[in-house]
């Protein structure tokens, strides 16, 4: 069989760059279809009630209360599925987008449940008696207990840092309260026994089962699968700026291919607690998936223990995840990084260098001082291999520093960003104030929002 003629070297480099930096991004229509399917699933039980010769209505207010109660139950069940990193959610959306959607839909869920409770009382003021903890029927007590569990879940999420709740403990509490709230809501619906006696009840039960299965997959089945594909810590390399790089090697497998800009949940293979896992951006080149590395700055919790890891420690990686995918036809890249927010950018630059990418890269990189610029020397070397210009911004510049000083803000970005950014892909990663300043500046410069990918680094 005749072989196709080899592609010219530049085309091959181009193809490699696209593979390492990003595949064709999913079109917005895919996400539109996903939202439509999600919306249909949420209201499916309502449709089943109507299709099943329901009992006569009791006035629009109480019927609206019932409808919101059923919708709330569906939303609650699906809330367990969204962050579970399962294919039907994580593939079209990206695990990071799915978690953000989970957070935003929590607001919708609270509004729906609050409206349900208020309308139950407005529709029939005698229902106020349902809040009597001694005299109320068990179905009402189940509903109140479910609301209390949800309130505790939200409070523990909002106040986690303030009450110094460790990330792993918070995750355990979060899942436990979520499952508890769902079970109590289902009990409430069964006790009310009005609309969920037939097909609609089966649908709600199925949604609840899917939610519980998603938790089982995330907490039990997935960790077991990952245990069969461990990585070894090969080196622990101290970096400038108080960071360390964990250089890993796939043990007995080839590693999972990833795209620069993605992240993985990292977990010690021998850690007894299954909930202690932490998300970090890949900092290595996507060209070597069998040797991924993660650069971690000690902020507390697991990040403080990272420098103490010994070579030979076995770790598990749940990844790659993350929706970022460089546009294949981007003409140039603008990377804006603050502190340890450099990690996805260094992965992009290393991948570009490995792929022989010829496109121009501009890195605007904020650090505390010159001595603490993580990857300082490597950035110098990379700028000799690829078309890279680095603008260092130092909060505490040394005497005689002629570069940029202070913080990354709109005026600074306007000085350095090229005037025409229409073909550029922009990746921003840093602390909340830096992110806000950079995004405001990009808006002023007229960069299309869909070409800007922003990530706020989190300290967990």
């Amino acid at each position: 069989m005749a072989r196709a003629p080899a592609a010219p070297a530049s085309d091959r480099a181009d193809a490699l760059a696209r593979r390492l930096l990003g595949a064709a991004p999913l079109r917005a229509s895919v996400k539109g279809v996903w939202v439509a399917v999600y919306g249909l699933v949420v209201v499916l039980p309502l449709g089943a009630v109507l299709a099943d010769a329901p009992p006569p209505g009791r006035g629009i207010v109480l019927e609206l209360a019932s409808a919101l109660g059923i919708v709330g139950l569906s939303l609650l069940a699906l809330q367990l599925v969204l962050p579970a990193r399962v294919g039907p959610v994580a593939r079209p959306l990206g695990a990071d987008v799915a978690v953000r959607l989970h957070r935003h839909l929590a607001d919708v869920l609270v509004a729906v449940i609050a409206a349900h409770v208020v309308l139950v009382v407005i529709g029939d003021p005698s229902n106020l008696g349902l809040f009597d903890p001694l005299g109320a029927p068990w179905r009402a007590r189940a509903a109140v207990a479910s609301c209390v569990a949800l309130a505790a879940l939200i409070a523990s999420s909002v106040l986690r840092r303030r009450i110094r709740l460790a990330y792993a403990r918070w995750r355990g509490l979060h899942v436990g309260l979520g499952v508890g709230a769902l079970a109590l809501s289902v009990a409430h619906a069964v006790g009310v026994d009005r609309y969920l006696a037939s097909a609609a009840g089966l649908l709600v039960a199925a949604l609840a089962a899917v939610g519980l299965l998603a938790v089982l997959e995330l907490r039990v089945l997935r960790p077991r699968r990952l245990a069969g594909r461990p990585y070894l810590v090969e080196r622990v390399v101290p970096e400038r700026g108080g960071a360390v790089t964990l250089a890993l090697r796939a043990e007995g497998h080839r590693g999972r291919p990833f795209r620069a800009g993605q992240f993985a949940w990292l977990k010690l293979a021998d850690a007894p607690r299954a909930l202690a896992e932490h998300p970090f951006s890949y900092s290595s080149s996507a060209g070597r998936p069998e040797r991924p590395s993660f650069t971690i700055k000690a902020y507390g919790g697991f990040t403080r223990r990272a420098p103490e890891l010994r070579p030979g420690t076995r770790v598990l990686l749940d990844g790659p995840h993350g929706s970022y995918s460089a546009r294949p036809h981007a003409e140039r890249f603008v990377l804006i990084a603050g502190g340890i927010g450099i990690t996805p950018s260094i992965s992009l630059l290393r991948s570009a260098a490995d792929a022989g990418d010829c496109r121009p890269f501009l890195l605007v990189y904020g650090s505390l001082c010159w001595e603490q610029v993580t990857f300082r020397e490597e950035l110098e070397r990379l700028s000799e291999r690829i078309d890279l210009r680095v603008v260092h911004v130092l909060t505490e510049p040394p005497p005689g520093w002629e570069g940029e000083a202070g913080f990354i803000d709109a005026a600074l970005l306007e000085r350095h960003l090229p005037p025409n950014l229409s073909g550029a892909d922009v990746f921003v990663c840093g602390s909340p104030p830096m992110l806000a300043a950079a995004l405001a500046a990009l808006e002023r410069l007229g960069v299309a929002p869909e070409h800007v990918h922003a990530e706020q680094f989190v300290t967990v």
Binding site: A28, K31, V35, Y38, G39, V42, V43, L46, V49, L50, P54, G57, R58, G59, I60, V61, E63, L64, S66, A67, L68, V71, L75, V97, R100, L101, H104, L105, D107, V108, A111, V112, V428, L439, A440, L442, E443, P449, E450, H451, V452, H453, A454
Partner: peptide, 30 residues
């Protein structure tokens, strides 16, 4: 200002849930 697609997704789902609940209530109370 960056393109946080979860905003339109959330708004669409929220609106859809509200409309579906209102439609259910209207149909059931007539």
């Amino acid at each position: 200002m960056h393109h946080d697609e979860t905003r339109w997704m959330t708004a669409a789902i929220e609106l859809w849930c509200l409309l579906a609940a209102l439609a259910f209530a209207a149909l059931q109370s007539t």
